[in-house]
Write a protein that binds this DNA or RNA. Structure first.
Length: 468
RNA sequence: GCUCCUUUCGUCUAGAGGCCCAGGACAUAGCCCUCUCAAGGCUGUAACACGGGUUCGAAUCCCGUAAGGAGCGCCA
């Protein structure tokens, strides 16, 4: 029997939320939702220099927009509040104090420069650049001397020798590491703040997190956190290390890849459903086909189907899901989505009709701008293909068409029938020139609704242009 | 340098020794539908990184090689 899982997303608000982060958030959210568990949002804002309040606000907004709601976290409260690490300092101090009493940590007076030198020497000697253990066994006298010299110590965890740390990774299977390969690491900086390894692991324990899905870059650091949790007497979550997402060049997604930030995607008009469905299949597979809603995504989520290889984010795939998401929109949702591209002053029925006419031809609202111009403003000048068709039809054809449009200004079938009767043309020879004159292009959405929406006289004016 | 992770169509992936001369989705090509384009339907092109083993039999197991990636931070 299994207990409801507690998962978490623990971003550091140092920049915009990008697709790599969102995927991590999504998988954790999916795991919690699938088993009626709890999804925790924890803000890792211990780095005062890089963490900005506006980033936090933006992060929350982006997650909400995507539909990834959290049960415990900022704005939601919860039994382990607060959920901002910047407000949990006393908790870290308490836990650190316990480790100090137990002798599991020691003060290290080495300066960054000394550490750096030691590291270089180790690498030169063909050894891993680990902490050399300089301050591990300091005498009281030595400590006093350092203090007298005004040195502020950091606190390091005393990594036990000869241990083997094993855990079963949700994605990569059984893992084994030797504690001898791990150097004594910093748990409290000289300025008194807790290190990432420490606060991250402690909070997972304190918040009762049962499953952690995180980036693969944490895989080989997991043993440290296991050691920490053990020393603190807290249960360790199950870990699953997700393969990284890479960009088109195959290089890891960079934080400054603006085009792939949620904010940018949203501004362009990408829909949450498109982003979620894309991410669901990036490094994760499912027998489920087609566009799925969040609940269906959750039901179909399976940690056993998480991939081990890095996945490349392909803009073409995003476009594919966007197309599906646009097609799946209800009529009123589609009209609202297209609203930014439509001219002000249209009444609701015009908006609805325009949306219905162009939505299959549009991926983003900006793509609809062209059709707005065609219907409500000026069509683009005919391109080469359209010009050839216009020329072939000839002035007499358009004279007849312009005359016909006097009586059938907005009625496409009637207009076509009248032009057909007057010119004897039919099929493409009849339709194509009309389309080109009316829209400037030889392709596009159905003409009947476009014609119905055009202001009075517009159709006739356009047809007349080619009548001589 | 050391430790660890990864490698199937262009892309995301299915595949846990015979069901695979490798299946699906997106992309792409063709056909159908259709006033055009899009949408929709159908059909096609296209991949097991390389080399050795183990086995009656390997995409699947083992060992090497190559190529990517991560970690070894008083950054998160």
């Amino acid at each position: 029997m299994s207990v409801a899982p507690v998962t978490r997303f623990a971003p550091s608000p140092s920049g915009e939320l990008h697709l790599g982060n969102v995927r991590t958030a999504l998988f954790n959210w999916l795991l919690a939702r699938r088993d009626a568990g709890c999804f925790v949002l924890r803000i890792e804002d211990t780095d005062a220099a890089r963490s900005r309040p506006e980033h936090v606000a933006q992060l929350l907004e982006d997650l909400r927009w995507l539909g990834l709601d959290w049960d415990h976290g900022p704005g939601a409260g919860g039994p382990a509040a607060p959920y901002e690490q910047s407000r949990r300092g006393s908790l870290y101090a308490d836990a650190l104090g316990r480790l100090e009493v137990a002798g599991q940590v020691f003060a290290c007076y080495c300066t960054p420069l000394e550490i750096e030198l030691g590291r270089k020497a180790q690498v030169a000697a063909g050894r891993p650049p680990r902490y050399a253990g300089t301050c591990r066994e300091l005498t009281d006298g030595q400590r006093a001397a350092h203090q007298a010299a005004g040195r502020r110590p950091s606190l390091r965890f005393r990594v036990p020798a000869g241990r083997e740390l094993a855990f079963d990774d949700l994605v990569h299977g059984p893992q084994r590491f030797r504690s001898d390969d791990i150097g004594d690491f910093v748990v409290r900086r000289a300025d008194g703040s807790a290190s990432f390894f420490f606060s991250n692991a402690l909070d997972d324990g304190l918040m009762g997190v049962t499953h952690v899905l995180r980036g693969e870059d944490h895989l080989s650091n997991t043993p440290r956190q296991l050691l920490l949790l053990e020393a603190l007497g807290l249960p360790a979550p199950r870990y699953g290390h997700l393969a990284l997402l890479v960009g088109e060049g195959g290089a890891p997604l960079s934080k400054r890849d603006g085009a792939l930030s949620v904010r940018e995607l949203r501004a362009q008009g990408y829909l949450p459903a498109a982003i979620l469905n894309l991410l669901f299949r990036l490094g994760h597979s499912s027998p489920l086909q087609g566009l799925l809603d969040p609940a269906a995504l959750a039901r179909g989520f399976d940690t056993g189907h998480l991939g081990r290889a890095p996945a490349k984010l392909d803009p073409v795939q995003l476009a594919g899901w966007q197309r599906e998401a646009v097609q799946a929109l209800a009529a009123d949702e589609a009209a609202a989505w297209l609203a930014p591209a439509m001219p002000a002053g249209l009444d609701p029925s015009q908006r609805a009709e325009f949306t219905a006419a162009v939505r299959a031809n549009v991926l983003l609202p900006r793509d609809a701008a062209l059709w707005c111009d065609v219907v409500f403003g000026e069509p683009p000048p005919p391109d080469a293909a359209a010009q050839a068709i216009l020329r072939e039809a000839g002035a007499a054809f358009f004279a007849a068409a312009a005359a016909a449009s006097e009586h059938h200004a907005r009625d496409w079938p009637a207009l076509v029938a009248a032009v057909k009767a007057a010119t004897g043309r039919k099929g493409p020879a009849l339709f194509k020139p009309l389309r080109c004159a009316l829209t400037g292009l030889d392709h596009g959405p159905e003409l009947a609704p476009l014609l119905r929406l055009m202001p009075d006289g517009k159709a006739r004016e356009r047809l007349s242009r080619y009548a001589h």
